[in-house]
Amino acid sequence: MRKWKRIDSADGPRFRSSLAAHEAALLRNLVVSLTGMLDDRESAAPTDELSEITGIRTGHTTPPDDETMKRLLPDFFRPRNGHPAGSAAAESLNSALRSLHEPAIIDAKRQAAHRLLDTMPDGGGKFELSEDDAQAWASAVNDVRLALGAMLEIGPEGLDQLPVGHPMAGHLDVYQWLTVLQEYLVISLMGSR
């Protein structure tokens, strides 16, 4: 992958880069897997009679069981230690907020992923993005990094290497490549305005 190049034009900024064929194939597979996980979460949501009457979509009231999905769809509210209302109030608040907002969050993540897939060259090569496309790329790559980071158990301190012989050692290289791709894109998006 080349670094991103920002081109300011009369129609707004454009962002150019290129991907090798194997990079494009890898990124496509990762993003397709991500959308599959989001689709599975959405399709497992319980049906709600009020939702069917009002047309207001609702989602799960409980957080995902899977650590990867928990990273993609975290709780909305984290209680403070020793909160006078106890943890039940936080759980109730999270349940309500999740039910109301999770469908829209999944939609936004899916839309960013599809926009990345639609604007990425199939067999690799040079490509150019609008600012909206570049924002979608940043969002989708971030989601893939979050999912992969959860699978690798990467915490806030990061991770430089896995133990020798670890079955996911190659995935760490992919995680680091995605980090560089996203970093250079974000730097380009933050360029002169």
Rank of each mutant, 00 (worst) to 15 (best):
Glu102Pro: 01
Pro103Ser: 04
Pro103Ile: 05
Ala104Ile: 10
Ala104Tyr: 15
Ala104His: 14
Ala104Glu: 15
Ile105Trp: 12
Ile105Asp: 11
Ile105Val: 15
Ile105Met: 15
Ile106Cys: 01
Ile106Lys: 00
Asp107Arg: 15
Ala108Val: 06
Ala108Thr: 10
Ala108Lys: 11
Ala108Asp: 12
Lys109Gly: 12
Lys109Cys: 11
Gln111Leu: 15
Ala112Pro: 01
Ala113Leu: 07
Ala113Glu: 04
Ala113Ser: 15
His114Phe: 14
His114Thr: 07
His114Ser: 14
Arg115His: 12
Arg115Asn: 15
Leu116Gln: 01
Leu117Ser: 02
Asp118Leu: 08
Asp118Thr: 07
Asp118Cys: 03
Asp118Pro: 00
Thr119Gln: 04
Met120Lys: 08
Met120Trp: 03
Pro121Met: 02
Pro121Gly: 04
Pro121Gln: 05
Pro121Glu: 06
Pro121Phe: 04
Asp122Lys: 13
Asp122Trp: 09
Asp122Thr: 14
Gly123Pro: 01
Gly123Leu: 04
Gly124Ser: 05
Gly124His: 03
Gly125Asp: 06
Lys126Phe: 10
Lys126Cys: 07
Phe127Trp: 09
Phe127Cys: 06
Phe127Met: 10
Glu128Met: 11
Glu128Cys: 09
Glu128Thr: 12
Leu129Met: 07
Leu129Phe: 04
Leu129Gly: 00
Ser130Phe: 05
Glu131Asp: 09
Glu131Ile: 05
Glu131Asn: 08
Asp132Lys: 12
Asp132Ser: 12
Asp132Arg: 14
Asp132Trp: 08
Asp133Tyr: 02
Ala134Phe: 04
Ala134Asp: 04
Ala134Ser: 06
Gln135Met: 13
Gln135Ser: 11
Gln135Lys: 13
Ala136Trp: 05
Ala136Ser: 14
Ala136Leu: 08
Trp137Leu: 04
Trp137Ala: 01
Ala138Cys: 08
Ala138Ile: 05
Ala138Asp: 12
Ala138Met: 07
Ala138Pro: 00
Ser139Glu: 13
Ser139Val: 10
Ser139Gln: 11
Ala140Asn: 02
Ala140Arg: 00
Ala140Tyr: 00
Val141Phe: 00
Asn142Val: 01
Asn142Trp: 09
Asn142Tyr: 09
Asp143Gln: 12
Val144Ser: 02
Val144Lys: 00
Val144Ala: 11
Arg145Gly: 10
Leu146His: 11
Leu146Cys: 11
Ala147Thr: 05
Ala147Val: 07
Leu148Glu: 04
Leu148Thr: 07
Gly149Phe: 01
Gly149Asn: 06
Gly149Val: 08
